[in-house]
Design a protein around this nucleic acid. Structure first.
Lengths: 233, 233
DNA sequence: GCAAAAGTGTTAGTAATACACCCATGC
DNA sequence: GCATGGGTGTATTACTAACACTTTTGC
């Protein structure tokens, strides 16, 4: 027994909701729980924060340990904190949830703490009781945040590799927002934001149709005016 | 010594950033700290969350205990969680920050835990070292959130009483955004959002100029298209 | 009447939308 | 040639922004 306290305390954990697009579906990285509670169910990679460890750093560490994804240089964004008194039946545990975006081709490797790690479609995970603890709520909040982010930020490029076409970027938006976008208007919009996309000088080759310009993500982080996803609901 | 743990733990606190407009300035409710650390400096009302207590409930309780503000029915919104290992020098403490909006005329009463409670202008509190702990960062985040909220939500009415004029509502926006708005365009915009404002049937009397219609907040919670504050920076 | 504040009209510019159309490639 | 997807042109509609103008009060 190593720690004592005069006051009630809580455990602090960090969880990572890592998105990517697999087979044209928005997916998140989940690991199968090996131990009780919720043994055998899926959960987001995450775990206890070290005594003097930064929460964001703990999130990166857990992501690497449980899934093999190297999170150095990955942008983590705080989604929220989950604090319900009985959300973990063992002891009160407060979880800080982070959102991350990964390209489709990252390599996975299940770690020691997890029986398995895999990409699962968000649609399936949002069905009742698919996820352990309150991770369904966390996922729902994270998806909302991601959808909003894409309106004003250039984050969508993080779903893609270093070089990509406008059509690939549009596909990201269509999958995340679950609605079709007009190819022509999208093209004009994103190429018109100063600093958002940089022409790599290369083009696609070998596909059907006219070759497309390959772009790199530019220095701009904000899209103004924002892309609209709601106007015509 | 009441509590023991095998693992490192943290204390959980809830803090409330309560905004109101006093003398045409955006203010937040702060209390003077009676004890170390940061004795004598200003901090947001807040404190430890009870063992089985909901965090949001703790926030309401602390607001009432430390400032005398009755927080029943008040809308609290999570701003974020603050977790830096040394943010409290005594022991690692994780704070969940909430944002609230109050009308200008709420009654204050300093509570047991605080030597004093008062409204202070945000501009002053944002100066270096005015606030205890990392409350300067919390305030900065809360102000950003508030400014964004006003773009799309009808929250601005919470700064006012039950009945108010369009000019008073516009003044709220001008103070929070710190920029002038065109009276005519603002009028058209807010009265044009279905369900945002409801005509109370009354008018102002006794002031200079033409009497204004008194409105009540309507059921609409979303302003679409949003009010724009950035287009012409 | 005059000042002041509420509220409306008008116009120009900007952006979103829909969709026609041309371009460049594989086959 | 034809199909396919990349990319541009263009008309319509919607909204913003600027500001002139009318309305209704106190003095």
């Amino acid at each position: 027994m190593a720690y004592t306290s005069e006051f009630p305390f809580v455990y602090l954990t960090a969880d990572v909701v890592a998105f990517s697009i697999q087979d044209d579906a928005l997916c998140t990285l989940v690991v199968k729980r090996r131990d009780a509670p919720h043994r055998g169910r899926w959960a987001f990679p995450g775990g206890f924060v070290g005594e003097t460890e930064d929460v964001e750093k703990a999130a990166r560490r857990e992501l690497r340990e449980e899934t093999g994804v190297d999170a150095r240089g990955l942008r983590l964004e705080q989604v929220g904190v989950y604090t319900a008194p009985r959300r973990d039946p063992r002891h009160r545990t407060v979880s800080v949830a982070f959102l991350a975006v990964l390209p489709a081709d990252v390599a996975l490797r299940a770690g020691d703490d997890a029986a398995d790690a895999q990409w699962s479609p968000v649609d399936e995970l949002l069905e009742p009781r698919r996820l352990a603890f309150d991770h369904g709520t966390i996922l729902s909040d994270a998806v909302d945040r991601l959808r909003r982010d894409l309106e004003r930020s250039g984050r969508a490029t993080e779903f893609l590799g270093d070089e990509f076409t406008v059509a690939q970027l549009r596909r990201v938006y269509e999958v995340v927002w679950n609605r079709p976008l007009d190819p022509g208007n999208f093209q004009r919009k994103v190429t018109g934001v100063p600093g958002l996309l940089e022409d790599s000088g290369y083009q696609t080759a070998g596909g059907r149709g006219r070759p497309a310009t390959l772009y790199k993500a530019g220095p701009a982080t904000e899209i103004w005016p924002p892309l609209s996803r709601e106007r015509d609901r």
